[in-house]
Design a protein around this nucleic acid. Sequence first.
DNA 1: CAATCGATGATCT
DNA 2: GATCATCGATTGG
Length: 204
Amino acid sequence: MEYSDLDDAALLPPSFYERGAACVARALLGAVLVSTAEGAITAGRIVETEAYLGSDDPGSHAATKGITERNSVMYGPAGCTYVYFTYGAHYMLNVVTDTEGVAGAVLIRALEPLVGQETMVRRRGRETSLTDGPGKLAQALGVDLDDNGVRLGSGRLAIYEGTKPVGPIERSGRIGLSAGHDLQLRFYENGSKYVSKARIGRRL
DNA sequence: CAATCGATGATCT
DNA sequence: GATCATCGATTGG
């Protein structure tokens, strides 16, 4: 048996993502995100996520009626990545959920570094706080717009079945939104020191 | 510690 | 022209 066979066996199947975003967000805690960008392997255990829904969710990029160039990936098939650039500086990594035609995505907000920490340090330009925030982990894993709309496992990114979360899974409002922050769609592994130190509730 | 602020550019109105 | 699913530096207690 080859290593690639083992990898395929542990790769989360498309059916995993063909559910509601909140369900997938919770289920992704403990899974392992792997990047092979620039020929270097970096990986981490997912410890924090947020779900983004369709037109009913005012905080989602799919809140406005209709498909735009940016949000179109959210309406596409489940198990693809949705990457976008914001604040003039940061890439955000999401995974598309729900069936094709229904908008939904899960933002990966924090990882526990497992592999390639030296590469992460080089990309981040610092020794600490490598992956405890969405912009940080994207930089640490070398994620950019080339990864947008790509099927997980077919490009530079893949997500593998992981361990069960060590601590209890907690739920809270989403961070950094001006709308839809009241929905309890943030999930995190309580007790993990790799969860983002968020400015919680900074807006009303 | 906590609170505040500027950077910086794509996207949408 | 305004907004932004952020981050790091700086300021103040």
